[in-house]
Structures are given as C-alpha cells and as structure tokens.
Design a protein around this nucleic acid. Structure first.
Length: 168
DNA sequence: GAGTTTGAAACT
DNA sequence: CAGTTTCAAACTC
C-alpha cells in the first residue's frame, strides 16, 4: 500500500487533471504562463470571453477547436459546457465569466475533480466512445437533443428512451 | 432575434 | 435512488 497524501484524488484522476489541460500538459507543473500567451491574465480573474477574443463568430473563431460554447452561468466548469466536457479550454467561445481557461486552472481542476468523483468516466479520453445512451422521451431520438442521434449513433439496449425512432 | 422545447447534468 | 431544478443547446416561430 503506497502512501497516499491525498486519498480523495486517485492516480487516474490526477492523470486526467493533467491530460485534460491542453496547454498545461505541455508545461512543467508550476511553470509560469508564457508572457506572450493570450492567457496572461492573473489566475482567478473573471471575464467575458468575448472581451478577450472579440465577438463570437461560430463560423470562423474556432481554429483547431471543435467546440464553441455560449455558457452564461456555469463558468464553463460543468459538463453542460461542451468545451469543458471534452477537455478543451474555451477559446473564442461566446461564453460569459468563463473559468475554463488556463489562468483559472486551479478552479478548473477542482471542478474536474468534482465531476470525476461523480462519474469517473465523464472525461472519456483514454478510449474512443463507440456507444452512447440516452433517456429521451419526446424527441423520438431523431433530433440532436438525443445524444445518440447527435453522435451519429443508433440507440441501443442500454438506452431508456421512449418512442425511439433511432434504432439503427 | 425571441421564445420554446428538450434532455443531460446537477442538485435535493 | 428518485424526483426536481438548472442549464445550454436545439429547435420553432
């Protein structure tokens, strides 16, 4: 039994905390932020993402980034935020008071830890997602509200959807 | 563009 | 664990 200074955070969680930080993962821990980086505000600062990156333009703002959120209340630190849920920082998003940014890394890591305590699979980064499950009731699983449908997947036996039309 | 609907995530 | 609330995206008008 190895000595564990922080029994509430598993090695896997620690691994994810690092691997889910796209920029910090490429630095040594504690290494100061690049002065020329666009992320050079003091940690814990709160700001409107649009103020830094300009007006949100979903068509062109995101370069090399799959997601662009518009979160308003969650500081982009909940799984409601697509960027956060996919282990991405918010860059060029239309979100407000975003904390899913390197200078709020400490808060971000706390949130990641909380999410993973709730669901260790939340950040499924180590393996591709082949199946999803949904609980749709009204959409017939034929609209993007349905996670299966929106991922281009058919519903499966694990789904608890009602009136499913997304069978294959 | 504003308002509504939807279902996941979060909370109790 | 079940029911409820909150949330942001999808959708409709």
């Amino acid at each position: 039994m190895e000595p564990n200074k922080n029994p509430e955070v598993s090695p896997f969680t620690k691994f994810c905390l690092v691997s889910l930080s796209p920029l910090t993962a490429q630095r040594s821990p504690g290494m100061p932020m690049d002065i020329d980086s666009p992320f050079s505000m003091p940690e814990n600062s709160v700001y409107n993402n649009q103020q830094r990156f300009g007006i949100f333009d979903p068509g062109s703002a995101i370069q090399g980034k799959k997601f662009a959120c518009k979160c308003r209340k969650t500081y982009c630190l909940k799984l409601y935020c697509d960027c956060f849920a996919n282990g991405e920082y918010c860059i060029g998003c239309g979100c407000m008071e975003c904390k899913n940014i390197p200078e709020c890394e400490s808060e971000r890591r706390i949130s990641i830890t909380q999410v993973m305590e709730r669901n260790p699979e939340a950040f499924h980064r180590t393996q591709p997602v082949i199946t999803k499950t949904c609980n749709c009731k009204r959409s017939g699983c034929r609209k993007k509200y349905c996670e299966c449908f929106s991922s281009g997947l058919g519903c499966n036996s694990s789904c608890k959807c009602e009136g499913c039309l997304n069978t294959g």
